[in-house]
Computed example of a mutant assay.
Amino acid sequence: MHGWIVYNGHLRSPKFLGYAKLIQEAAQGKGVSMDIYQNQELLSTLSSHGMDITGVSLKERPDFVIFGDKDILLARQLEAMGIPVFNSAASIEACDHKGLMYQQLASARLPIPQTILGPKIFIKTDDLNLNHLIDEGEKLGFPLIIKEAYGSFGEQVYLVHTKDEMIEKVKEIHNRPFLLQEFISASYGRDVRLNVVGEKVVASMLRYSENDFRANITTGGKMEPYTPSQAEEELAIRASKAIGTAFCGVDLLYDEDEQPVICEVNGNAQIRNIYECTGINVADAMMDYVIERLSKKGNQAL
């Protein structure tokens, strides 16, 4: 069995290549060879003869791909060529656009912060007519959260405390997809990350910050191992199913009654931090899942 690992070559942080190498090492330990490619090394070609992939020094067509990127068209191209992709292009897209993610979680009746999707505004303009959005935002109460639909590692997430701050932030970002969201104040600077693989939570950690409303490690948060309750595990698995991920990181906030609320489902969850925190290498579980899925598919084909 041979696979590819794809990551974004223009994100210069070593964590992205580190993610790919963790998976490659886990695969090697299970007798599976994997090549690592940056997404720009795999170009999708389209013609009247169909679809193909051209790239730098491609050795052989893979049996599967671990897709550690958000290049959705590339993921779709691989799928259209009959190559299993983990996670699927559809689930990557749902995780990538927070508005779509919350729509799918709400459709599954899962606990999420009350959310208002911003209207589509194609251009940067001073002629904004957002009175209704502002009225609805005020109903959420202050402070409230404004999120750009596209963003990672706690970036593009803003805490605003007044109506004027809300208006100014919307004026700043209105030509990009965004949403307004209830602020779960009881969970200020605190969340729990649960890594889900298939239908199992394989690792969990508590993240916290002493000086930021976000608990992300990238924004300065700290971490410690965490043992989730059965209810928390079941919620994380339901969230993963609602989005359609094979593996993901589910982040939980906690309301004033200490009940879990889904903050986000991350389809490209980094696994180095939780490995260092818990000693659990999520890549091992990911590869076990892929091998089992492909084995079942092969048996069905027989």
Score class of each variant (00 low, 15 high):
183 F>T: 00
279 G>T: 09
287 M>E: 01
258 E>F: 09
259 Q>S: 12
276 E>S: 08
251 D>V: 10
193 R>K: 03
277 C>K: 02
178 F>Y: 14
196 V>D: 12
251 D>E: 12
258 E>R: 11
282 V>A: 08
177 P>M: 04
181 Q>F: 10
266 N>V: 12
201 V>S: 01
200 K>A: 10
199 E>I: 02
168 E>P: 00
284 D>R: 04
262 I>K: 02
206 L>K: 14
230 Q>E: 15
184 I>D: 07
230 Q>G: 03
285 A>F: 12
166 M>P: 07
185 S>H: 11
186 A>R: 05
206 L>H: 15
250 V>R: 03
265 V>P: 08
215 A>Q: 11
237 I>P: 12
216 N>I: 07
268 N>H: 00
192 V>N: 05
259 Q>I: 01
220 G>S: 02
171 K>T: 03
240 S>V: 02
251 D>M: 07
262 I>R: 07
254 Y>E: 01
209 S>T: 01
244 G>R: 10
193 R>A: 06
175 N>C: 10
239 A>I: 04
209 S>H: 14
214 R>A: 08
166 M>G: 10
217 I>T: 14
181 Q>S: 06
233 E>S: 13
229 S>A: 07
172 E>L: 13
224 E>T: 14
194 L>G: 02
179 L>P: 02
226 Y>F: 15
209 S>E: 07
